[in-house]
Every structure is written in structure tokens, then in C-alpha cells.
């Protein structure tokens, strides 16, 4: 987005001009700008875990196949 590129340039200039307000590495920082995703809260539904109602938006699956009922050798027919 053009807007973001202009913003990045502006910030680079500030980092250089006010160098004594920022650490040495500031002028070497890589920058990424993300639009605030207002729908983020609506899309993600919390997943419930544990006995204390801990919530997360990520899950993990089991480390091995639970059963072997799907016949992969037949998939090429």
C-alpha cells in the first residue's frame, strides 16, 4: 500500500533526525506495518482448554494416526 510506504519513509526520517532518542540499531530496523484488523475479535473464537477454562485460539493435534481405516492404496483408482 502506498500509504504505508510513505509512512515508513516518514518514520525512517524521524529515526535519523532524532537519532539520540533511539538506539543505534534503529536506523537498521526492518519495518512492517499492519492494518489494524477490527474484525479480528469477531473471527477468532476462543478454544477452551483445561480445568480452569484457559482459552487459546490455537490447538494441537495428536502425534500419530488414531486409526488406520482409510485405504490410501485405493486413492489412485
Amino acid at each position: 500500500m502506498e500509504n504505508n510506504e510513505i509512512l515508513k519513509k516518514k518514520i525512517s526520517e524521524i529515526l535519523k533526525k532524532d537519532s539520540d532518542k533511539f538506539p543505534f540499531i534503529a536506523q537498521l530496523w526492518e519495518m512492517e506495518i499492519y492494518e489494524k484488523n477490527l474484525n479480528h475479535e469477531k473471527i477468532e473464537k476462543d478454544l477452551n482448554y483445561g480445568h480452569f477454562n484457559t482459552k487459546s485460539y490455537k490447538s494441537t493435534y495428536f502425534y500419530k494416526p488414531i486409526s488406520k481405516i482409510i485405504d490410501f492404496s485405493k486413492l489412485n483408482e
Partner: peptide, 30 residues
């Protein structure tokens, strides 16, 4: 910044003579 999320990456960097040559600011934060 301006309602957007700004992330800075590059937590560590090797200081090469090239970088030193191009660096113009005499002072920076500790």
C-alpha cells in the same frame, strides 16, 4: 502509529565497516 500496528524487526545486527561508513548520526540512545 496512525491507528496501524507498526513492528520493528532486526533485534541483533552484525556491524560491518560498510554500516559504519554509512551511519551519519554522532549520537544515539545508550
Amino acid at each position: 502509529v496512525n491507528g496501524k500496528d507498526l513492528h520493528f524487526f532486526t533485534s541483533s545486527k552484525l556491524i560491518t565497516s560498510n554500516i559504519l561508513k554509512k551511519y551519519t548520526s554522532d549520537r544515539f540512545q545508550a
